[in-house]
Write a protein that binds this DNA or RNA. Structure first.
Lengths: 335, 335
DNA sequence: GTGAAAGCGCTAACAG
DNA sequence: CTGTTAGCGCTTTCAC
């Protein structure tokens, strides 16, 4: 089962020349390259990344750490990362923390650091001091995608701003009774994101001179089911709002479902607006502020790979763009 | 920036003893093990998988190849695989074909074979001869999860049977006008799955003595949007069925949405049934035949890891179980 | 129980 | 342009 050695023997060249030829180094005669390639094909040569990694210190792999996989945002981001990685011939090693704390320790203190990756993409994670220290120690180029992560550069939208805009949009439609479904994601998501989105909502209401109805701020756990049950309990509380701003599209879908189950209409009785740009929104007609996690993944990856290639590190990133998409789920308040 | 060498120096032991101690080999004195461990911790030792991989031929990584990531089934399966892999200290290398044919070639003829993984899990893939040959050549323990894949052992539900049961369930409720939303997934999914599910539907109708209305078999592309538009066009065709069997829950969700948009009710006017066990189904009240992709992922992984550990290969697998869950979206035909 | 030496498959100076 | 010589960091006989 071949190695570079066999090719050397077969072609009568030396190991090093074969190695160079295989990597298309300019110092090799074109003819030689051809010869080597042919031989490699014939022998069914398969390079060993372990070996070349050992020799160069480059693993041609990037680690991607996610709190959970099962969320639209993460999946899209992973696809973006993956696309760029493949393009450059890198492998993607997936580390799923899966909400398991033990796993987390293992990832940060062991797996990741097993010199298997050249760089790290962290999805919506926040770290404690020891983890941050590990990250710095490891000296990998690192980027966080999603929520802000103190101490590590990050790529993402301006959560506070988007939430504020979404809320203001509802205000602009005349709504004065606006609920918010957001909340912590116990699965281990960046806990700064929900907070900032909630703050944006609060700030918008405040600057419009409106009171904050605590009963209208619900924890939807960033899931479809959570959005559904949150909306249901808001509806059941007697004091029903005319609009609801959901911190994620998935929760908004749940909310819409609950509203319709209650025999009410969207936006006739209650307006709904979300954040994300989830595909389902097209079919369900959800008005939302869309972000492009795929692009974020690609951008982050490109930066990392660039740095591995010797480009100067980019210390921080502009907030990612957000696009308002009106699909009719938010309308003027009923008079 | 240690290696095993530094530990050796620090403890006054030899490289080999340190290596053994680190791996808890029985031939090492307990006291030595302690010493070595302590030194390793202090020096912040991080093992190099590349090096040990080179020496042993074991990479402690498993490759997971998916046609696309963005589907409930794949995500769940990946989570199952991941959980088992982490438990055993293996890494998960994700190969996303992303519907790109070029990528596919690269994966099968290069990446995967770069001796970076010890085993392979292929999600719902079907191979051509050359790919199958590559797989065999690579000699990795391999399992396909999802649809049947000629030439490679696979873990999955009995698609034909489930489809038949689902259709029969509708028949049992008195339905005689049953549509089917299934269809090819152009994204590169196992093309045998849609076919088998369609066949199950057909067979059930046939054995009930019912005619096949070709206009009632639609291609929903296995997506929410596809299910929605398929249902819409069925509704618009004038000849409306009393029930629809969807080959996946996501399509069923789309169908339900379309039905309600048309001012009809589920199951009052039209009954809907799906396959999968997607979480959304709980909230949306979808009657379905649930499978457990997570468990499938875990099982497949356990088998692979077992074989790597020397257990005899398991040549084939029983069909995975399926659980009928009645959530009320399918009811008796209106009389 | 522990050490010495060889080697996994590749790359990287340094010569030529 | 190509060959020689050392390793990369770990595991593994084979001795002691």
């Amino acid at each position: 089962m071949s190695g570079i050695q066999e090719i050397a023997r077969a072609t009568g060249l030396s190991k090093s020349t074969v190695s160079r030829a295989l990597r298309n180094l300019p110092s090799v005669a074109p003819a030689t390259i051809m010869t080597v390639r042919r031989a490699a094909d014939e022998l069914g040569y398969v390079p060993s990344l372990a070996a070349s990694g050992l020799a160069t210190g480059r693993n041609h792999a990037v680690g991607v750490v996610v709190p959970v996989i099962d969320r639209w945002f993460y999946i899209q981001t992973i696809e973006g990362i993956d696309a760029e990685l493949r393009r450059e011939g890198y492998d993607l090693i997936l580390f799923n923390l899966a909400g398991r704390t033990g796993n987390r320790e293992r990832v940060f203190h062991r797996s990741i650091l097993r010199k298997r990756v050249d760089a790290l993409v962290l999805l919506s994670l926040v770290f404690d001091d020891s983890e941050r220290e590990q990250l710095e120690l490891s000296e990998y180029p690192t980027v966080v995608i999603g929520g802000r992560a103190p101490g590590v550069r990050h790529i993402g939208i301006d959560d506070f701003d988007v939430a504020q805009r979404a809320t203001r949009y509802l205000l602009g439609l005349g709504h004065r009774r606006i609920a918010h479904i957001g909340g912590l994601d116990e699965a281990g998501m960046n806990f700064l994101v929900p907070g900032e989105r909630h703050d944006g909502y609060t700030e918008a209401l405040k600057s419009a001179g409106l009171p904050l109805v605590t009963d209208w701020s619900r924890n939807g756990a960033y899931t479809f089911a959570g959005g559904h049950s949150s909306m249901r309990s808001i509806l059941g509380s007697g004091d029903v709002p005319t609009a609801v701003f959901c911190a994620s599209d998935e929760m908004a879908f749940g909310a819409m479902q609950a509203i319709r189950e209650a025999g009410l209409s969207v936006p006739g009785d209650i307006s709904v607006i979300g954040i994300d740009g989830h595909v389902y929104g097209e079919t369900l007609g959800l008005t939302t502020f869309a972000q492009d996690p795929r692009a974020q993944g690609t951008r982050a990856t490109r930066v990392l790979l660039g740095e591995l290639a010797g480009q100067p590190p980019q210390p921080w990133f502009e907030p990612e763009p957000v696009t308002f998409i009106d699909r009719g789920s938010a309308g003027p308040v009923a008079s």
